[in-house]
Amino acid sequence: MRKVVLILAVLFLTVISARADVNNYNPYQGWFWYKNPPKKEKNKDKNKEEKFTMKTYTYKQLWNMYPDKFQKLLKYALRQAVQNPTPQNVKQYLILQDIARRKAYAFSNVVGYVTQTNPNLSLYKDYPENSPGIRMRTGLMNYDVDKTLKSNRDEYALLFFYKPGCQYCEIQSQILRYLQDEDGWEIMPININQRYDVAARFNVKTVPEIILIHKGSPQWIPVAAGVIALNNIKRNIYRGIMYFEGKLNPKNWSIYQFQKNSGFDVDKYPVAPDMKFKIKVEEQ
Rank of each mutant, 00 (worst) to 15 (best):
Q80F: 07
I233Y: 01
K276R: 15
V4I: 15
L140P: 00
N23C: 08
K205N: 14
R201V: 08
D183M: 15
Q219P: 03
W33E: 02
L78C: 04
R177A: 14
P128D: 04
N47C: 10
W220D: 15
K48A: 13
Q194A: 02
F70D: 04
K268M: 09
M54A: 07
W253Q: 13
R137A: 14
G165A: 11
T148F: 05
E282S: 13
K150Y: 02
D144W: 04
K51P: 00
K60A: 11
K39G: 08
R102T: 06
A77K: 01
I187P: 01
R137W: 12
K268L: 03
A229H: 08
D181N: 13
N232Q: 15
E209H: 15
A20D: 11
V22P: 00
T117A: 09
D267V: 07
T117C: 06
S254M: 08
W253Y: 13
R195Q: 03
P132M: 02
N84P: 08
Q97P: 03
V281W: 09
D197R: 01
P67F: 04
Y76E: 14
A224Q: 06
V111F: 08
Q71Y: 10
I221C: 06
N191Q: 12
G184H: 07
A200E: 14
Y59D: 02
V22N: 06
V145S: 00
V271C: 07
L179T: 06
A224R: 00
D126Y: 02
V4G: 05
